[in-house]
Amino acid sequence: MTASFLGEDYLEIRDLTVDFDGFKAVNGVDLTLLQGRLHFLIGPNGAGKTTLVDALTGLVPATGTAAFRNKDLLAMKSHQIVRAGVGRTFQTATVFEELSVLQNLDIAAGMHRRAHTALRARREAPVRVSEALETIGLANLANRSAGVLAHGQKQWLEVGMLLVQDAKVMFLDETVAGMSDAERSETGQLLQRIAPERTIVIIEHDMHFMRSFADFVTVMHSGEILAEGTVAEVQADERVQEVYMGTPTGAKRD
């Protein structure tokens, strides 16, 4: 974990609140996300984790500030936020099933191209796409249609799409859910490989996965931040234990 502020990216969230007709799904959250570490966001169902990410990626309106490179993400539209370097995945992998793995990645790389070049056909894979294919280990499936990929491979493809779009901040929403143990550890290693240059936030229910790979953990409960720290610090926190004792979510994998 390298947590120097100098020359490194960070996303600073202050007093972020999402109000659904009086129900505060996220309530006054202050959070600083730093480059170079795998930051896990955990908490029971309904804690507001996904809503927080939705707010940061323009899906739901929120109040407060979320400063990234002198821009306030909360005032931007989804596609502008992506262009500013903030990407995300969704709980259910949504790749373009009729297109090949390569085409999926190529489309993700497309926002860095000028519009008129889109009228030309792709001759060969751009370097960035080839590199991403290597990184996510799908190079030998490049021309397969994404619809036939296994569940885990689709999630890796999603991560690959974030890589080619050169997202500096990545929000991964339950990426390892439904994966086999082998796929989980491969995913964790993949994330560790790409972490140094990025700010990665992982929403996760899988405590085993979290313990194996987390550099830093934020626990949310009822829309607020309950605790923050290393895995050991968080696990030692009594309030965290209380929250997880009351719900089966935390216990299910122990």
Binding site: T57, S78, H79, V82, R83, G87, R88, F90, T94, V95, F96, E97, E98, L99, Q103, N104, I107, A108, G110, M111, M161, Q165
Partner: peptide, 14 residues
């Protein structure tokens, strides 16, 4: 085609 099949996803590719 990608937009046809997953319009929301396209938004998150910028």
């Amino acid at each position: 085609v990608a937009t046809r099949d997953a319009e929301e996803r396209i938004r998150f590719l910028g």
